[in-house]
C-alpha cells in the first residue's frame, strides 16, 4: 500500500515532467513560428506600434512609480547598513548596482508580465474563443503573423525600455532619499557610483538580462493565449499561467544569467 502510494508520487512526478517538457517543446516550436512569420509585423510597423502603446506606454506609470519607490527604499535600507561601516558615501554604488544589475530587469519583468503579459494572453485567448483567429485563417490571413508576432515584438521592444526607465527612476529615488534627506554628499553619491559601475560589465549586462526576460515573458504570454482552451475558464487559467510561468522563468533565467555574467570579479 505504502509502496503503491510512493510509486504513485513518482508516476505523477514523471507525468508532470513529461508534460512540462512537451509544453516547452511546443513553446519553442511556437517561437520559431512567430519569428519566421514576423515579416508582416516588420513591414507594417503600425501593427507593432499599436501593441507597444498597449504593452509599453500603459505600463509606464506602474513601472515608473515602482522604480521610484524601490530606489527610495533601497537607499533607506542601505543607509542603515552602510553607516555602521562608515561607508554611507557608497550608497550610490549600492543603489545603482542593485537596480542596474538585478532589480531593474527582474522587477520590471514581473510587473510587465502581470500588467501587459496577462492582458496579451487574455486578448489572444478571447480572440481564439470567439473564433476571431479561425475567421482570420479562413480569410487567408495568418493569425500568427497578424496577431501574435506584433504583440511578441512589441513586448521585446517595450520591456528593456521599461527596465531602463525603472532603473533610472530608482537611482533618482535613491538620490532623493540619500542626498537631501540623509545628508550624503551629492558629489560622493555620483562619484562613487561612477567609479564602481562599469557601463559594459554592469549596465550592458543588465540590458541583456532585460532583453532575455522580455523574450521569455512575451513568448509565454502569446503562447499561453494562442494555446489556451477556447472557453471562459480556459482563458482565465491561461492568464494565471502567464503570470506564474513568467515569474518562475524570470527568476530562473536571472540566476543562470547572473552566474555567467557576474561570476567572480571579472
Amino acid at each position: 500500500m505504502a509502496l503503491d502510494a510512493l510509486a504513485n508520487v513518482f508516476v505523477r512526478l514523471g507525468t508532470a515532467s513529461r508534460k512540462g517538457i512537451t509544453r516547452l517543446g511546443f513553446a519553442m516550436r511556437f517561437l520559431t513560428a512567430v519569428v519566421s512569420h514576423s515579416g508582416t509585423a516588420l513591414t507594417r510597423p503600425r501593427l507593432v506600434v499599436r501593441e507597444v502603446y498597449f504593452g509599453g506606454v500603459l505600463s509606464l506609470v506602474i513601472v515608473g512609480i515602482s522604480g521610484l519607490f524601490i530606489g527610495m527604499v533601497l537607499a533607506l535600507q542601505g543607509y542603515e547598513t552602510l553607516v555602521r561601516f562608515g561607508a554611507s558615501e557608497s550608497m550610490g554604488v549600492l543603489v545603482a548596482l542593485s537596480l542596474v544589475r538585478e532589480l531593474g530587469p527582474v522587477v520590471t519583468g514581473l510587473l510587465f508580465a502581470s500588467r501587459a503579459g496577462s492582458a496579451v494572453t487574455a486578448e489572444i485567448g478571447l480572440m481564439k474563443t470567439t473564433e476571431q483567429l479561425a475567421a482570420m485563417e479562413v480569410m487567408a490571413v495568418d493569425p500568427i503573423a497578424r496577431v501574435v508576432a506584433p504583440r511578441f515584438w512589441a513586448g521585446v521592444i517595450s520591456m528593456p525600455l521599461l527596465a531602463a526607465i525603472f532603473s533610472m527612476l530608482g537611482i533618482y529615488g535613491g538620490f532623493v532619499v540619500g542626498v537631501p534627506l540623509l545628508g550624503i554628499d551629492a558629489g560622493a553619491f555620483w562619484g562613487q557610483m561612477q567609479a564602481a559601475v562599469d557601463w559594459r560589465h554592469d549596465v550592458l549586462n543588465g540590458v541583456i538580462k532585460s532583453v532575455v526576460f522580455a523574450v521569455a515573458v512575451s513568448l509565454i504570454a502569446v503562447f499561453e493565449g494562442y494555446d489556451c482552451t477556447p472557453t471562459a475558464e480556459g482563458v482565465s487559467a491561461a492568464t494565471t499561467r502567464t503570470v506564474v510561468t513568467s515569474a518562475i522563468a524570470i527568476l530562473a533565467l536571472d540566476f543562470v544569467l547572473t552566474v555567467f555574467m557576474f561570476r567572480g570579479g571579472v
Binding site: 486578448e123 478571447l126 480572440m127 470567439t130 473564433e131 476571431q132 479561425a134 475567421a135 479562413v138 480569410m139
Partner: peptide
C-alpha cells in the same frame, strides 16, 4: 471564399 462564423467572430478591437 467567405465564411460566417457561428457567433460572427467580429474583431472586437
Amino acid at each position: 471564399l467567405g465564411m460566417l462564423f457561428q457567433f460572427g467572430a467580429l474583431f472586437t478591437d
